[in-house]
Structures are given as C-alpha cells and as structure tokens.
Amino acid sequence: MVAAATQSYLSLLALEPPGWGGVMLVGFIQSLKLAFGGYGLGLLIGIGGACGKLYGGPVLRDLMEVYTTLIRAIPELVLMLLLYYAGTDALSQLLALAGYGSVDINALTAGIFVIGVVQGAYATEVFRGAIKAVPIGQIEAARAYGMSSFQVLRRVTLPAMLPHALPGLANLWMVATKDTALLAVIGFSELTLVTRQAAGSTKAYMLFFLAAGAIYLAWTLVSSLVIRLIEKRARRGLTRTA
C-alpha cells in the first residue's frame, strides 16, 4: 500500500501527462536560455563598460560610474520589474519613432535584456579590476611593437586579464542562473514559475519544489566542473604563489 502510494506520488514527475516532468524540463530549458543570453549580453556590456571607465573621456567615465552605481544599489527584483516594464516599453517606443512601427518584444528577449543589464554592471567592475591587474610592462611592450589600441586590447590585455577575471565571472554565472527565477514574478514560464504551477495544481508542494531544487543543484555542480576546467586551462603556464 505504501509503495503504491509512493509510486503514484512520484508519477507526478513523469515526463508525459498527467505528470509534470515534461513541463518542468521545458521550463528549465527556458531558464537556461535566459541565463546564457543574459550572461552573454552582460559580458559584452561589462567589457565595454570597463574600457569606458579605464580609457574613455570624462563624460563616458561618469556615465559608466552612474550606471554601475545605480544597478548595484537598487535591489535586483526592483530593477527587473523596472527594466521589464519601463525599459521594454521605452525601447518599443524608440523603435516606433525610428519608423519600425509598433514592435512587440517577446518575453524571452525582454528577460535576456533585463538580466544582461544587471549582469553588465557587475561584469564592468570585474573586468575593470582584472584589466588593472595586467602588468603595465606587457602593454607598453605591445605598444612598442607598433600595435594599435585595439590590437593591444585583443591580443594582450584581454588574454592576460582573463585569469584574474575568471573567479568573478564564475560567480556572476551562478548569480545569472539564480536570477532567472526572479522573472517568475513577471509571468515568464521558467523553471520556478512552472514548478509553482505544478505544485498548485497537484498540492504536492514538497515534491515539486524539492525536484526544482535538485535541478538547480545539478546544474550548479555541472557549471562548477566546467568553470574549474576553464580556470585550469586559462592559468596554464602561470607560476603558483605560495
């Protein structure tokens, strides 16, 4: 009797209906799309922001300082609500003014934009600190060889700063993965929202939230393994300090 009840309880996680496992898998894939897209956008913003802070003019440096200060000062949930509703509406209006007519921005694109903007502020500081850790002699040597500023950045500064930036970037990846859950409040069907829907429909709250936690944990462990491999490769040839 107990075994049958347990089997019936666990059947709620089946991939086929009436199980909710397939729905949770789709939600997890949506979460990964958000995480990868937002993280990638954040890296691009971070590199641009760090270069702007270090090498830009006074106006650009001040703008980057305001951006990073505001993003890091305001709670992420408030930022996401603000950027999702106000930011996407402003972008749609700008596109309409540019002659593209009314543009409907889908939830996935908006979610990637929101996470990317938040990640970009933190990535800016990570890259800025890593670039400043590059020995100035390497940059001066590259300039002495006649490299342009872009060549110095691409061939010397970015490769040399990568080992210094990786710990911070790894932490940002973990944050991006967890930040996808915050988009449940705006109705995006990622893992947290579909888990809540499944639990509400079946009243098996413990089962579904434990399952969602296990999925997040498994993904974190896989991410940690990949990050360690990347760090090992990026630090090859470097001498270890005692």
Results as ranks from 00 to 15, higher is better:
L13R: 11
L25Y: 06
F36W: 13
G19Q: 00
E16P: 08
S11D: 05
G22E: 07
K53E: 12
I47D: 03
Q30N: 15
F28M: 11
K53V: 08
G22Q: 06
W20F: 15
A14Y: 11
L34R: 02
F36K: 08
V26S: 15
G38E: 03
G42W: 03
A14K: 13
G49Q: 06
G27M: 06
L41Q: 05
G56Q: 06
C51Q: 13
Y39A: 09
P18I: 00
K33I: 12
F28R: 04
L12R: 14
G22K: 04
P17I: 02
P18N: 03
I29T: 11
M24C: 04
L54P: 08
S11Y: 01
P17S: 04
L54I: 14
G57I: 10
G38Q: 00
G37T: 00
K53I: 11
K33Q: 14
V59N: 13
G52D: 11
G40L: 04
G21T: 00
L43T: 06
G38M: 00
P18R: 01
A14W: 11
I29V: 14
L15G: 15
G56Y: 00
A50N: 01
G42S: 07
V59D: 13
G56A: 01
L13D: 10
I45L: 10
A14N: 15
G19L: 02
L54Q: 07
L43W: 07
L13M: 09
A50F: 01
G22I: 04
L44W: 10
L44R: 07
V59F: 14
L13G: 09
L13F: 09
F36P: 08
F36Q: 08
L32W: 09
S11M: 02
W20G: 10
L15F: 12
L34F: 08
L43D: 03
Y55S: 12
A50C: 07
K33T: 06
V23C: 07
L32E: 06
A14M: 11
I45P: 03
G52H: 07
L12Y: 14
L13T: 10
I47C: 04
M24T: 00
Q30G: 12
L43A: 07
A35K: 02
I47R: 00
G56N: 04
G56S: 07
P18F: 01
E16I: 13
G38T: 06
G27T: 01
W20C: 12
L12E: 12
L32K: 03
G38F: 01
P58I: 15
L25R: 01
V26C: 14
G21R: 05
G52F: 02
A50Y: 02
L34H: 01
Y39W: 14
V26H: 13
G21C: 03
G38W: 05
V23Q: 11
G40M: 04
Y55F: 12
G21H: 02
G38Y: 00
A14E: 14
E16G: 09
L13P: 11
G57E: 08
G46S: 08
L10G: 09
G42A: 08
